[in-house]
Amino acid sequence: MLKIKSLRARVEDKQILKGLNLEVGAGEVHAIMGPNGSGKSTLASILAGREDFEVESGEVTYNGEDLLEMSPEDRARKGVFLAFQYPVEIPGVSNANFLKTAINEIRKARGESALDSKEFLQLMKEKMKLVEMDKTMTQRSVNEGFSGGEKKRNEVFQMAMLEPSLAIMDETDSGLDIDALRIVANGVNALRNENRSFVVITHYQRLLDYIVPDYVHVLYDGKIVKSGKKELAFELEQKGYDWIKEEISAVKA
């Protein structure tokens, strides 16, 4: 589904990704962990198509197509979804209106007919339950005045509505209390199936207690330096990232 080969990227003159490799198969959940500044959010941004980053070399293919060539909207239409670390507030644009436009763009790309208002409302009602979202949230402007937890729930709600085949979750756990974390994780778990893949980016192991990954990768200094099964996350939790850093410097020396 997703193949990243020797990806090198920079922002202005700062090298951030230094030859990253990753393969994600259909239906798999991959956690990417790493200390601050290791390049986690840069990876998420590049996959979603943010233009602040310059890809120097390497390739990213998604279902065999060159992902880096596509506009952000085309990626979304082909099933890529980014749950933002900091969801943007857009005053004056209603959540419902925005989402209806988005869903119908994606349906059009899939060759499906547009949802009418009734069908859309029905679907919204159904998916709202997943993240215990209340009706007033959908009537408000996109993320405007939402608490941190509401913003993250709204991201998962949008994911449920748009039904992506590859969801990238950028530190979805940051700023969440334990109740909100549980709601968000339950929403994500309900969306797991054999065709849908997840890349879950997080600093802490805590989220992975709820969203149990198939694979765990450690991103450090722009590269994936260690990969393993879910047990790797527990090891990181116990030993911290210093252990990885020491291993790396030992190899270099």
Binding site: A48, G49, R50, E51, S71, P72, E73, R75, A76, R77, F81, L82, F84, P87, V88, I90, V93, F98, L99, T101, A102, I103, E105, I106, A109, V142, Q158, L162
Partner: peptide, 11 residues
């Protein structure tokens, strides 16, 4: 905001 909308499939 523009990127956010586009990342949801809106041209």
């Amino acid at each position: 905001a523009l990127f956010y909308l586009r990342s949801r499939g809106i041209g």
